[in-house]
Design a protein around this nucleic acid. Structure first.
Lengths: 215, 215
DNA sequence: ATAATATCGATTATCGATAATGTCTCCCAA
DNA sequence: TTGGGAGACATTATCGATAATCGATATTAT
C-alpha cells in the first residue's frame, strides 16, 4: 500500500514519516476512511512507535486525519461543504492578497508566473494531474506569500492541503486541460496595474473554480 | 512557576498537560522565551515524557511555542507585526461573518450578547483582565460560529489564541474599563437588521482595536 | 431467550531507558 | 591572543515494553 522507503538523510525520522504520509494523503493514495495503525506503520519502516505517533499528531492538527482517543486514526473525509466554505473564504481573502501584492510585482515575477502556467500546460499534456495541481497551488500561493501578511500566508498553507486533497480525490479532472489558459488573462491584468480590476478578475476566477469543482 | 496539579479525571494525561500549558501561556504566566523542558515538566507532574512531548507538539502546531529540532521549545514571542496582520485579516473576515450571521439572529442571541457585555462590565469592576478578554473573544467569536462556514470558524479559533495572548502580555490595559460600552452600539445595529451598516460598524470597531492596541 | 457481565484480541497511551545531538567550558597549540 | 578540539553536561529523539482502553464475542444468570 505504501511502497516507499524512508531515506534517513537530513531530517528526523518523525519528520520523514510525516512528510511521507502527508504526501500519500494529498495525492489520494491513502483514501478517506483508511486506518493508520501506529504499530503497523512503525513495523513497516522498522522504527519504533514514538516518531509515528508524532507524525500522526501533526497530521491530526492539520485536519488530514481524524481520531478519537483510544480509537486510533483514519484519513479524514472531506465534504464538499468544507471545500465550498474554503472557496468562499478564498473569495474574500485572495482579492485582498492580490491587491496588496500588486504594487511590488516586477518583471521577474510575471515571468515566474508565466513559467508556472507553461509547466501547467506541459503537465496537462502528460496527463500529470498532480503536477497541474501543484502549479495551480503555487500560482495562487504566490500572492499569499507576497501580500506581506503572515497570518494570511499561514491561512493559505492550511487551506491548500485541503484543496489539493479534495481535487486529488474528486475525479473531476475535466477542464484541467484548459487550466493554464484560464490563468493567462490574470497575468495580463496584473501587468496592466489596475488593481481594482485585478481583484475583480481574481474573484471571478475563484467563483468559476467553485462552479467547476462543486456543482 | 506552574503551581497547579493534574487532576486525572476524564481526559488523557497528554490532554491535561496540553490544556494546562496552554492556559498558562494564554494567561501570560509563561512568558515568551521561557523554555519548556520535557523532563522537567514530566518530573513535576510525575509522568513520563511521552504525554509531555505530545502536548508540546500540539502547542507547537498552534504556534504558541516554537522550537528547532534537537534544541527544545520556548514559548513563542509574538510581535506587534503579527498582531497587526491578524487584525487586518479580522477586518476582512469579521465583516463577512457578521453579515452572514445576521439573518439568523433572534432575541435570545441578542440577550446572550448583552449578557456577555454585562459580565464584561462586572469583570472590569473587579479588574479581572482575563475575564474581560474572554468575554470579548466570546462576543466576536459568536459571529464566526454563526456564519455557517467551518473554515472561518477554524480560522477564528486559531487567531483567537494569538490575540488573547498578545493582550494578556502587552500591558495596555487602559480602555478595557470601557470595553463593554464600545460594544453596546454593535448590538443595536444588529437589532436594526441593516446588515450593510452592521458590517461597516464592525469594521470600524476592528480598526479602533488596532489603534488601541497597536499604536 | 435475554440482559448483564466476563474474557479476548487489537490498538492506543504511557512508561522508563538508551542513543543522538547540541552547548558549553577548558585546555592547548599556533 | 585566539581558535579549535576534547570532553562533560543538558536535552531531545528514539526505542522497546507495559498498562489502559475499546469493541466484539463468549458466558452466565435470570
Amino acid at each position: 500500500m505504501l511502497g516507499n522507503q524512508l531515506t534517513f538523510r537530513n531530517n528526523s525520522i518523525s519528520a520523514q514519516v510525516y512528510t511521507m504520509l502527508k504526501k500519500q494523503i494529498l495525492e489520494g493514495n491513502l483514501q478517506p476512511g483508511e486506518r493508520l495503525i501506529v504499530l503497523e506503520i512503525a513495523g513497516r519502516f522498522q522504527i519504533s512507535q514514538a516518531p509515528v505517533r508524532e507524525a500522526l499528531e501533526r497530521l491530526k492538527q492539520e485536519g488530514l486525519i481524524v481520531g478519537q482517543p483510544n480509537k486510533g486514526s483514519v484519513v479524514s473525509n472531506i465534504t464538499s461543504k468544507e471545500i465550498r466554505d474554503i472557496f468562499v473564504l478564498r473569495e474574500i481573502i485572495e482579492g485582498f492578497a492580490v491587491r496588496e501584492s500588486m504594487p511590488h510585482l516586477d518583471k521577474d515575477d510575471f515571468r515566474y508566473l508565466e513559467t508556472l502556467l507553461d509547466e501547467m500546460d506541459e503537465a496537462a499534456h502528460q496527463d500529470d494531474m498532480l503536477k497541474i495541481l501543484e502549479r495551480d497551488m503555487e500560482f495562487h500561493g504566490f500572492f499569499y506569500k507576497r501580500c506581506n501578511n503572515h497570518a494570511i500566508l499561514e491561512l493559505w498553507n492550511h487551506m491548500r492541503s485541503k484543496v489539493m486533497r479534495f481535487m486529488a480525490i474528486s475525479n473531476r479532472y475535466y477542464s484541467t486541460q484548459k487550466l493554464a489558459a484560464y490563468h493567462r488573462p490574470l497575468i495580463e491584468v496584473l501587468k496592466s496595474g489596475d488593481s481594482a480590476e485585478a481583484e475583480r478578475q481574481f474573484i471571478d476566477h475563484m467563483k468559476s473554480y467553485k462552479v467547476i469543482h462543486l456543482d
